[in-house]
Computed example of a mutant assay.
Amino acid sequence: MRRSLLLLPLMLAACGPATEPANDTTANPAVDAGNATALPDDEIADDIVADEAPAPAATASPAPLDPPAPGEPGGLDNDTAPLDESPQPEASAQGAARVVERYFGLIEAGRYARAYQLWEPGRAGMNRQAFVRSFDRYAEYHANIGAPGEIEGAAGSRYVTVPVQPYGRLKAGGRPFNMRGTVTLRRVAEVPGSTDAQRRWRIYDTDIKPRP
């Protein structure tokens, strides 16, 4: 792992299901909410090493890419605010960013089906099988993760956006790609009748698009 200026500590191999490299016109499969059942709370853990299936075997690839630095075209914003590394409550904006880190960490470990469970049911834009297959085209997939925005509220829900910069290489010809966008997370506010599971951050949407 590397750490760049003003990014969250983890920069992990990553992929979001709404993310497509430049010049790829493949449409997303239809939503299959039936395959998006949330995991029990005790199965969504920070430990991302073990899984029910082994990760795909590593293959030889070109030298690691150097993505655009913060402030450069295609890079994350060059925010000069100091990084807050103190322990953060799960309900905080930093807690939402940790979910994004966990999501990309699961992708890095080849645990695609488990990463899929971090999406809010019905919001991933594809069923679990299509989500897993969507990673077949990549030889390398990495991401820089930026600092989260402020928490916003609406109708008993809370939302946070986290900037993400995916980059890497396609299997076809080793072509590089670079993208930038945000991942939006949602949770239910502390209202009477809400459960612990509903008050956990879940991935709600992403607007990641290819960049030059």
Rank of each mutant, 00 (worst) to 15 (best):
G74T: 06
A139W: 12
A69N: 13
P192V: 01
R169A: 06
A147S: 11
G16M: 13
F131N: 03
A81H: 14
S4Y: 14
L170M: 13
R187N: 10
R199W: 15
D51I: 01
A130K: 08
P9R: 12
L83C: 01
V31P: 02
D42C: 01
R3N: 14
Q94D: 11
W119L: 05
N127D: 15
A189G: 12
P82D: 11
E190Q: 10
A18F: 13
A91K: 12
S194G: 15
L65W: 06
G168C: 09
G122R: 13
E20S: 11
F131T: 02
A97I: 02
T59M: 07
G168D: 10
D66H: 00
R202G: 07
D79Y: 00
P73D: 05
Y204G: 01
I107P: 05
P68R: 12
A130H: 15
D41A: 08
A69P: 02
E90Q: 13
V100A: 03
P87S: 09
V183C: 07
Y103P: 05
M179Y: 02
M1I: 04
T206Q: 08
P89L: 06
A55C: 13
L6W: 07
A50T: 02
A109C: 05
A197Y: 08
P17Q: 05
S61G: 05
L12E: 07
P73I: 02
Y116R: 10
P82A: 07
R111V: 01
L12N: 11
S86F: 01
C15K: 07
E52L: 08
A113I: 00
T195D: 10
L39M: 12
E20V: 05
F177E: 04
V191G: 01
A147V: 15
P56H: 08
T37Q: 11
L76S: 04
P70S: 04
V31T: 13
L12F: 12
M179A: 05
A14P: 03
R175A: 15
R211G: 00
I151R: 09
P70W: 05
P163T: 10
I48Q: 10
A45F: 00
E101V: 00
P56F: 14
A36H: 15
M179Q: 15
E52C: 00
E120K: 09
P64V: 03
T26V: 08
G153M: 10
A60Q: 13
L76P: 14
G149R: 06
T26S: 08
G174R: 07
T184R: 14
F104I: 02
L8Q: 12
G193C: 04
A139N: 09
T37P: 01
